[in-house]
Design a protein around this nucleic acid. Structure first.
Lengths: 210, 210
DNA sequence: ATTCTTCTTGAACATTGTTCATTTTCGAGC
DNA sequence: GCTCGAAAATGAACAATGTTCAAGAAGAAT
């Protein structure tokens, strides 16, 4: 069969509109929060009817989930860009990059972590898996730093450590909680990772100041 | 003036109904999640009209916020019950008690941390303050363990550490994320606190095993 | 050009938060 | 006890928003 997608005019329009809807939805979530996302607003801004949104995404959750999927993809791409030469620096870098990304896209991240499905339908597995994979990015550097440790334990440690960083950042950036003044967050994160690595018997980065 | 509240029949009914509404709303949130909470369901279960719910709480957010307020109060009460003899044990106890409480009332805690107000109205200050106070409960034991440290730094450390524990627990208990197998969470938390305290130069609890 | 398939539309419907004129209930003064 | 005014309760109506679907439009196939 001929897989050289000779895209039909119909498909072109469909794809263009799909991207447009997503861009608009993402913009609304990012600027005004998930709770302000309304089907009619999206449809109007995209210049189509509400029915088309449903045609394309099944239901409104479908739009949200697609945005969330792209959010975690963007996050993963950013995290993968952290240099891996030095494992300790890599861990710092992952935490700080997560902080940067979260600060830039706070509402998108909240949509990813806080959105609940209607009824009790399960969250799509692929998104869960991608989040897990992102949180597992601390695994390789930890393996290098703790070569004698059990791999399963390191996997757990990776998720625990990343979850801890996530907690510090997500609460710290929540202006309503004012848990930590934002300008201090980066420093707090650094000290936190520092102390934790020291507790694991790993040399702090201070010993190798550039 | 006579403050010996001789409660009128009217006030009795009002208070009884208020408590009833809250109990029903809390039950629905706890069992089916915040998203399943509907005015009409609450009103019907409480045997009154929807108007009465509005009379008592202003709007529906008022019901949710009142439940959230009581949740953080209950949490604080539980955390205050952690023995304070030994500061290290106290820190462990706070983390484990938070885990217990979160596991028992996961949906109520999620309502507390994830609920967004309509429009952009601010979250009530008193609730924020109570959450902050709860997260500051690690302050006293940390002061005892780090007597030479700056008090402001310890305050930040307290919130950072508690936020980290919160992150580990909230993601770990999120079945949809399956970040950490629940039965291992307690152990993970223990190891986490352990490593972090060690990193701060504090003797691990192993050195003082009972 | 005709037909067939598919997509689009938007009005209608369903659900749910909110309001408010009316009715009911309670308490105070007689 | 009765009456009256204040306060509360009511629930129908309204508003906002997610969802469906019959009818029409647009593109593809012949």
């Amino acid at each position: 069969m001929n897989n050289v997608q000779e895209e039909s005019l119909r498909d072109q329009k469909k794809n263009r509109r799909r991207l447009q809807i997503l861009e608009i939805a993402r913009g609304i979530i990012a600027t005004k929060g998930l709770r302000s996302l309304k089907v009619r607003d999206v449809a109007e801004a995209a210049g189509c009817s509400v029915g088309s949104v449903y045609n394309e995404f099944g239901d409104f959750d479908g739009v949200i989930l697609t945005v969330n999927r792209e959010t975690v993809q963007a996050l993963t791409a950013r995290l993968r860009g952290v240099p891996a030469e030095d494992p300790v620096r890599q861990l710092y870098g992952l935490a700080e990059t997560y902080l940067e990304f979260f600060a830039e896209h706070a509402n998108l991240l909240r949509s990813l972590f806080e959105h609940r499905m209607e009824d009790d339908r399960p969250y799509p597995d692929d998104i869960l898996q991608m989040v897990m994979d992102a949180f597992a990015l601390m695994h390789p550097p930890l393996v290098r730093l703790l070569p004698d440790a059990d791999d399963v334990k390191i996997a757990l440690l990776s998720r625990t450590l990343f979850s801890a960083v996530h907690g510090i950042i997500s609460l710290g950036l929540e202006e309503r909680m004012v848990a930590v003044p934002p300008q201090m967050l980066r420093q707090q994160i650094e000290q936190f990772v520092d102390a934790h690595l020291a507790g694991l018997g790993i040399l702090p980065v201070g010993a190798r100041k550039s």
